[in-house]
């Protein structure tokens, strides 16, 4: 049994950003951030070229679908899929979507992008979570010139080979953390965002904060012995085959059931 919530990643950020987010995960076969490096940011040439090809295909798809007057640009009126979706595509904020927008690196929604990027930049490609306190210190320590703030140049110098193609990592951090809008990151700004993001107060930065965390509660993932098992929540969904509404419990009857929740981008 598979429950699909189609396009959840793309839904948060539009087509191109979803592709970029996927590339974050794919690109993170790179080493953790090198805070001592003076190397200019480098991404594998083939990754950049591949990304550029994807964006060109994305532009052609968008233009065919939405550029109804064929003038090479898509207006909000032509796009007509909501303000958020349009804003995510209009990366230079000039009010129209053009090929050049897709050529720009994407700023991910910070609530999604920062937990995706930071654990992997500082903890290695397989890091899903990162402890907040050392993460805040590590990010703030990129301040090479000692002015108390991390600039885009200092960040990119440190990221080195870990820069994922198509993603504006520093822009994503700014979108979440830069409270005073000076396009720099201070230690207090970094710490505040990380603390605010840690809704379940477990001291970790993760993509998803546990909504049901309770002190002393049983673990929420893994195997559960029979005496510790909780009832599986029931829900109404729609069969893909015929659109008929159905309850999970009605489908299960008295059989074991596996639910595979997925997103598709």
């Amino acid at each position: 049994m598979r429950v699909l919530r189609s396009g959840s990643l793309s839904g948060r950020a539009g087509i191109a950003i979803a592709a970029a987010a996927a590339l974050v995960l794919n690109a993170c076969g790179s080493p953790p951030i090198d805070r001592g490096s003076d190397r200019a940011p480098v991404t594998r040439p083939d990754a950049r070229a591949e990304h550029a090809q994807h964006m060109e295909e994305a532009w052609r798809w968008l233009a065919a679908r939405y550029d109804t007057d064929g003038d090479g640009q898509i207006t909000a009126h032509e796009h007509d899929r909501g303000e958020t979706a349009f804003r995510n595509l209009d990366r230079d904020g000039d009010g129209v979507v053009t090929r050049s927008d897709l050529a720009r690196d994407a700023v991910l929604p910070p609530d999604l992008g920062i937990p995706l990027l930071l654990p992997r930049l500082f903890g290695g490609s397989q890091a899903e979570v990162a402890p907040i306190a050392p993460l805040a210190v590590a990010l703030a320590s990129l301040d090479r010139d000692g002015d108390g703030r991390v600039s885009v140049a200092e960040f990119r110098r440190a990221v080195g080979l870990g820069a994922p193609a198509g993603i504006d990592g520093f822009g994503t951090l700014l979108a979440g953390m830069d409270r005073d809008r000076d396009e720099l990151l201070s230690a207090p700004e970094i710490a505040q965002w990380l603390l605010d993001r840690d809704a379940d107060r477990d001291g970790l930065l993760a993509m998803r904060e546990r909504e049901s965390s309770r002190e002393g509660a049983a673990p929420v993932d893994g195997w559960f012995e029979p005496e510790a098992r909780e009832p599986a929540p029931d829900f109404a969904a729609f069969a893909l085959a015929d659109g008929a509404p159905t309850l999970r419990s009605a489908l299960q009857q008295r059989r074991p059931m596996a639910l595979i929740f997925g997103s598709f981008t």
Partner: peptide, 20 residues
């Protein structure tokens, strides 16, 4: 099921969560 972005759940025949 706190399932975003993806997750797998095994429900036993009695309708209880056996594994997540």
């Amino acid at each position: 099921y706190e399932a975003w972005p993806n997750r797998i759940v095994l429900i036993d025949a009695d309708g209880r969560i056996a594994w997540r």
